[in-house]
Design a protein around this nucleic acid. Structure first.
Lengths: 362, 362
DNA sequence: TGATCTTGCAGAAACGTGACTGTCAACGCG
DNA sequence: CGCGTTGACAGTCACGTTTCTGCAAGATCA
């Protein structure tokens, strides 16, 4: 049996290789590669001819071979925080979904795709996928995965400034301190005398920075801190904590909740104690959910602008991957947006009949 | 310059190859490969020695090379519906997030990772990633991406039964028809005389099957259909449609909303028209969101069990990839769950003071 | 009219792994 | 002692691409 006959050796019947294209077009492999990738010096006629033959054969270059040769896979890892065993948690549901969506779009627009990976350092999964870089959402201190990635020379960009000495390539975050101070001032302007905080027991920087800002604000204005902390990954614990906060003898007349479900939790707790919002209790929570636009009453929310964060993270990462502008700032701060609704205003702006819900601003 | 000196040719300084391990351990490449992959016939001493050296050098096999050689990448594509330009839409927000989370977990547990890909047939992205299989959420009729994937011999499993003659390998879905009929019966049992439907204008099978079931139910019980359809991808249109539905002269005394935000939309519209829920208007919507447990009143929801669907889709797909049990059913139906709350019961189950919100059932 | 340059393409070497084949010694058995 | 068998490895090829080098043939120029 001659070896020349087995030209279609191991190739699957449905897939045509670059060799088949070259043979069908009557040119060499080099010419096919150059023609399809726009390289080399070829007359337009040859280029068109090769492309036509490739289309006719339904040729798709092997991603694995290309990756092996070029060292670039076009894949970006997306690591999401795991409080428990789940890839992401209820607390950040809407935030994560929005951020991931924006990141996906931004990556695709530049020819990259996102791979969802666990924060646990399971080598069997991490080492099985060739990554060009990684996005880490809210990395924990001394994250072993991040350390190993940077040790391998891969760029790592985090959503949320890294705790401790975590060696990320760059990070994108909000100014959580300023955001909290702004909300507290906003509530104080609306007449709040004692502002409470619903916070978390976890040690991530978001919770830490926000709580610290609250405590410093209290100290500055001379108010005793009134807060309840709960494990943010437990959706039921939030309702209990909201109840506790409003059951205290030093019950606050305004509350800021750090996590997405706190709005409904606090609203339900207020109803249980017969407190009217906003007359008896001013309410603000940090959330990306649109449901707070049509609750009764609508609740003022702080948006962390996850879309802008997701987009920025991807742009910074891909720039680092492609070696563009290493001189640019590796730390980027995205402004937050306070969406003021009825729950934080003593006097509702309008008492007339409201029209059908107006579109949310971007 | 001798060629032997350049043994560490193109390799990046941080990455050790299998050659380096072989040299450091004093064995051949074959022995290293066999020792690490548990193949061949090697004494345990050699096996341990090689593994030790590999660990010491921090050796990680190249995913690209392994994929090229074995033809398996360990990557599964996740294609999400795009109504507009965005990867996924508000309407299915919670559903998608839950489903994707479950699918991610299930895939990781079996050593696979998920790659988020656009439903548009952008070859430059699709052909740049080596996939072992693909999950398609709610595929549209004659989806070009799906057709091309199956033509390449890749298994494709869809969440939602495929419309028309789309040649998917397998699918997992709910029995939407039975679910709608069950809800309508539930509302009729609660005393509804005229049940309305808030539905979509899109042509996907979920909308189609649900609407058809509604119309047939109406015909069977002799009720005139009362429904409003709107483009489900537009979050504002839902509020307007809910308003229209309750503004009709033949206003329904019960409404089922097919999409996640319909609950809050309908609740807001009911308030605008002074309708009490559930006294004047019974409400059910299809949603995975936990906010409906603590709205005023809590709203009865239909859960499509996205976690079970996501898990099942991945199991079926990986079984197909690994050639396990091609004789198993390629069509799998996941039961839905109706979570009955106050909004669909004429007589609230309890009028006593309710305790802090109880945990949601799984 | 050679000498040099440009054009248009072919050959072949990698990329890092997995798998097949080959080699050499030791060993059991008649 | 001859022979087949088995253990323990080494050599080598192939996966499908990209890219570097090189080679003819025509163009340009002194």
């Amino acid at each position: 049996m001659s070896r020349a006959e087995t030209s279609r050796r191991g190739s699957r019947p449905g897939r045509a290789g670059i060799r088949d294209v070259a043979a069908a077009a009557g040119v060499s492999i080099t010419t096919v590669s150059d023609a399809l990738n726009g390289k080399g010096r070829l007359p337009d006629a040859t280029r068109r001819h090769v492309r036509e033959v490739a289309d006719r054969l339904g040729y798709r270059p092997s991603a694995a071979a290309r990756t092996l040769r070029t060292g670039k896979s076009g894949l970006i890892g997306l690591t999401v925080t795991t409080y428990g065993d789940e890839p992401f948690t209820f607390t950040e549901f809407a935030y994560f979904a929005e951020m991931a969506r924006a990141a996906t779009s931004a990556a695709l627009a530049r020819g990259y795709a996102l791979v969802i990976l666990p924060a646990t350092s399971r080598h069997d999964v991490w080492s099985n996928v060739a990554l060009d870089g990684t996005v880490v959402i809210d990395p924990s201190d001394h994250d072993p995965v991040v350390s190993e990635l940077v040790r391998q020379g891969l760029p790592v960009v985090s959503d949320g400034r890294p705790a401790g000495t975590l060696p990320v390539t760059a990070w994108v975050d909000n100014d959580h301190e300023a955001a909290v101070l702004g909300i507290l001032d906003h509530l104080a302007d609306a007449g709040a005398r004692r502002i409470g905080l619903l916070t978390g027991t976890t040690t991530d920087t978001y919770t830490h920075l926000s709580t610290t800002a609250y405590l410093r604000w209290c100290e500055r204005v001379g108010q005793d801190p009134v807060y309840e902390a709960y494990p943010a990954h437990d959706p039921c614990a939030g309702a209990v904590a909201a109840d506790r906060l409003l059951a205290r003898p030093d019950r606050p007349d305004a509350v800021y909740g750090l996590f997405d479900p706190n709005g409904t939790d606090l609203l339900a707790a207020a109803r249980r104690y017969g407190l009217r919002v906003p007359e008896d209790l001013l309410l603000v929570c940090c959330s990306e959910s649109t449901v707070y636009a049509s609750t009764e009453p609508p609740i003022t929310t702080l948006s962390l602008k996850p879309r802008r964060i997701g987009t920025a993270v991807i742009q910074v990462l891909i720039d680092a991957i492609e070696g563009l502008g290493p001189d640019q700032p590796v730390e980027q701060v995205i402004p937050t947006e306070l969406i003021v609704r009825t729950s934080s205003q003593r006097r509702p702006p309008r008492t007339t009949v409201s029209p059908p819900r107006s579109p949310e601003r971007e």
